[in-house]
Design a binder for these strands. Sequence first.
RNA 1: GCCCGCGUGGUGGAAUGGUAGACACAGGGGACUUAAAAUCCCUAGGCCGAGAGGCCGUGCCGGUUCGAGUCCGGCCGCGGGUACCA
Length: 855
Amino acid sequence: MSRYVAAEIEAKWQNAWAGAESFKAVRDESKPKYYVLEMFPYPSGKLHMGHVRNYTMGDVVARYKISTGHNVLHPMGFDAFGMPAENAAMASGGHPKDWTYSNIDTMVDQMKPLGLSLDWSRMFATCDPEYYGQQQALFLDMLDSDLVYRKNAVVNWDPVDMTVLANEQVENGRGWRSGALVERRELTQWFFKISDMSEELLSALDTLENWPAKVRLMQENWIGKSRGLQFSFERTDGAEPITVYTTRPDTLMGASFVGISPDHPIAKALEADNPEVADFIAECRKGGTTEEAIETGEKLGLDTGIRVKHPLNPDWELPVWIANFILMDYGTGAIFACPAHDQRDLDFCRKYDLPVVDTFLALDDPKPVENEAFVPPKTEKVKWLNHFAGLDVATGEEAIAATIGKAESEGWGTGVTKYRLRDWGLSRQRYWGCPIPVVHCEKCGVVPEKKENLPIELPYDEGGKPIDFSVPGNPLDRHPTWRDCACPSCGAPAQRETDTMDTFVDSSWYFARFTAPRATTPTDMAEAEYWMNVDQYIGGIEHAILHLLYSRFFARAMHITGHLPAKSKEPFDALFTQGMVTHAIFQTTGDNGRPVYHYPADVEDRDGKTVLKTTGEAVEVIPSAKMSKSKNNVVDPVDIITSYGADTARWFVLSDSPPERDVEWTASGAEAAYKHLNRVWNLCDKIGAMDPDAKGQGDEDLLREMHKAIRDVTLGVESFGFNASIAKLYAFTNVLAKSKAGAAAQKQAIMTLAQLMSPMTPHLAEDIWAHQGGEGLIINAPWPVADEAMLVEANVTLPIQINGKRRGEISVPADMTKEEVEKLVLAHEAVTRALDGAQPKKLIVVPGRIVNVVI
RNA sequence: GCCCGCGUGGUGGAAUGGUAGACACAGGGGACUUAAAAUCCCUAGGCCGAGAGGCCGUGCCGGUUCGAGUCCGGCCGCGGGUACCA
């Protein structure tokens, strides 16, 4: 008997696929195409189990589609710009470029043994000048089409390191290196006009039927369409009125104050000559720029002394406050506060002793607001107090509509639609990104670079010496020569833009580039026309909003600029979001009270308790934590492949959890997967050794089970139920192992089993196929089809419930009529006993499923 | 804070509103073996019962339904996102 040696067969079949160019994607109009794409990785330098799971899922889809006659495009690349490369250079010297390319080499070496059906000839990294040069060309076309512009925007500023910080570099309001309190600072930056497409990006979500509903919902909320009223408050000092936008104009009679953003023009004007306001605004500028920091931070306000008139009652004056939670980016940067029906406004008013006026009360419990704002759903009827549009009992929705109508007819306000979605700021004050291809000329201003000068490459050195990344800030900004250039327009000495692009730009069009990765234009329309759209996109739920929304915007922009066909405005036909790979954390408490994390290899179970191998100290086990280097709970796929083989790793990451959920990596689970593959191997060996003419019993039973397996496994693969497919494969393997059927039936069964396993464990499948004398490669064999006639069941088991509780069962022919079933049920012993001569109140027969007797 | 998910045996999980716990791991028992490993067989939610069987049970509280893990409302806990992490 032979032994299952994964390393041997895996290398053998990977060579066979390479030799046959099985995965090289070539445009072929005679075949239906299928483009499957997994979100490409950041080259961190180490492949982790999450990658293995992600790519294995894509591989299952790709191989299945090849078997069903599709011309498959399954490419891979690297999202290679970004901060970790610069951080590494800062921490340990070296160059971001060297670090990145060396990591890419390592990761490719780690990925290849997985046996993925990738067309490696299409590989690229976004930091290849060949790629980012085309991205610069795209940028110029977008500039030309008025999709890009410049404006001021705030960044996190570290006043000690004198550098811009990313949000993740701000820890509790302080810079991660300097520890200095971070400030908000304004810079002139580049923006994509994504907000112009708000309505289009929102309404097109309805067409994305094969996207998870939760992703569409998240994007809908993110775009945040709202209908409200825009109107102005007259100032008592006669100065320019203050325009506000509100989604709850119905609560205008409960207005307590008018609030403006610290970045509002009025606030800025006061800042210049009022030291108290200047101090307050300086205070507001402390802290980070994130929505979370602003929303959870302490709410601060300052009375400006300005007074405005209530639009419905000129005798009613309201104070104008500057409040740190009002965003200049949303609406008009000014609001009116109605504390009775907004918790944040209420907290603010209680803190600063401002009035709280109820505008409506609950019908069932009409008591005034104290310290909890009354915020019922807008669809709930409430009792209005003194409503200016004459309402008494009405819902919020009705009141809003009536208010907008009244304001418009009286001419003091306008109903407007607004979106929460802001324009996409793409400027980054960093080195390791795609340079923005524009030039600043004293005479001509901002001038686009000429396309023939692209790519504008990043400089590797500065003045013949390696760039010093230990100095904070942007090396491009202080580079002695790189900035200097001739103005593309007038030829005078000018300076390059030193901002680089947000790395989300890189990942917003790579899927299009894969269709023609070496083209000398961003895309090749003939190739894009054939290969687009991505039929199945697979990646993490963490990208539900930004990456996917930006890609949807970019696809539209690329259509406008002539780089993608109209059909690609929505580039991803189907989306699947997979869960993470998790692993238990083993922790003890150190002398200083801080947790100490232990590697899985350093702990063991003794008498049902988890302890340290060395000392026997009890270890706390935290299950299902995201794998993280700092928690010492990372399992290296390379180790798994070395000990068990790629097929085992692939089988395991698919087997235990539904793909959309997290999967817990356990050593015993991997061991079990390996054992099972051995079992299949041995089964193949045993069947191969049978006398080909040997007869047996139960041929038909075996083949019926085989056809059921074909049906169930296929359904699982098509619906991303890989764990269900694998459960069925386990069950069918058990049936086959116990079968006494003849040699011919068993051989047919094992070959079909190999085919059904081939998307998950392709190497083992090829080997079984070859061993059983299958023709050619299994990857080229057509997918098996279930024979409907073999799937029909003659009898069904119907559980009998009495008042919803299972009390017995009957077995009946599948086609038995309802009436006959009822008769049998009423005669059933459990039913007669429960009825005790009485008539049932109700008898429910669900054909083929269940019977319920209500007594 | 806000938006979106998730929560089922000792463990990972299965279950178009229709027999809760498929399939697997760990466990227990057994076969084979001088022994061990490997392999194979049986068992297995909890409680009560000799058994037949009964009661309880899908994070918590309530609702809809002949019937709820599944649908609805309210909580609790965990995870993702929150526009410069990718």
